[in-house]
Design a protein around this nucleic acid. Structure first.
Length: 184
DNA sequence: CGAACGATTAGCT
DNA sequence: GCTAATCGTTCGA
């Protein structure tokens, strides 16, 4: 995908990304779960304006925003919308297709369903680190390739947030065995 | 400067 | 289902 493909509002990009291929340095698979966030969204890191942590969200679209979650996990987002709008898409789960051995080694588990089913697990399996923050998604080590969607998209409330629970900006590939959680 | 709180996960009941 | 782990970021005094 090209940077211009990320110009749309985050909820549109989040939906469009379901089924796309995401590979980081040869390791990755098919995206099966995403969540959208934007500047006017109380649950978003960008809600209170630019800070040292979230500056990548206010930069050019088509780049990575990497943040530390609960002091433990590294999570990957795609910056969306027009530059400065503070919108992004959290990549929550994917179906592992490339580099399975590397993923198993990084994760320390064998079960393919536990490799990338959740934003923290996905970050660990793909080797996401803070030096990728702000990096272009159309350059090494990233590969993001849009493909024909293998099935219908379902949506529902986002996970793990306390605000704006009524906003249904979580998207998933219906019936996928690699979702972090079932959709209601 | 102190305190509260996570866009989570793993492990135990 | 419930909770501990774990620490950087953010906000209030």
């Amino acid at each position: 995908m090209k940077p211009g493909d990320f110009l749309a509002p985050s909820q549109e990009v989040a939906c469009a990304l379901i089924g796309a291929m995401l590979v980081v340095d040869g390791v990755g698979g098919r995206i099966v779960e995403t969540e959208a966030y934007d500047r006017l969204d109380p649950a978003s890191h960008s809600f209170s304006g630019p800070t040292p942590r979230n500056q990548a969200m206010f930069g050019p679209p088509g780049r990575a925003y990497v943040y530390r979650s609960y002091g433990i996990h590294w999570c990957l987002n795609f910056v969306c919308g027009e530059e400065g709008h503070g919108a992004g898409v959290l990549i929550r789960a994917l179906e592992p297709l490339q580099g399975l051995d590397v993923m198993r080694e990084r994760r320390g588990v064998e079960d393919v369903r536990l490799l990338c089913s959740g934003p923290g697990r996905l970050g660990q399996a793909l080797g996401i680190t803070p030096d990728l923050n702000g990096k272009r998604l159309d350059r090494f080590p990233f590969q993001v390739v849009s493909t024909a969607r293998p099935g219908p998209v379902v949506k529902g409330p986002r996970i793990g947030i306390s605000k704006a629970k009524e906003v249904h900006w979580r998207f998933g590939l219906q019936g996928s065995a690699f979702l972090s959680r079932r959709f209601a």
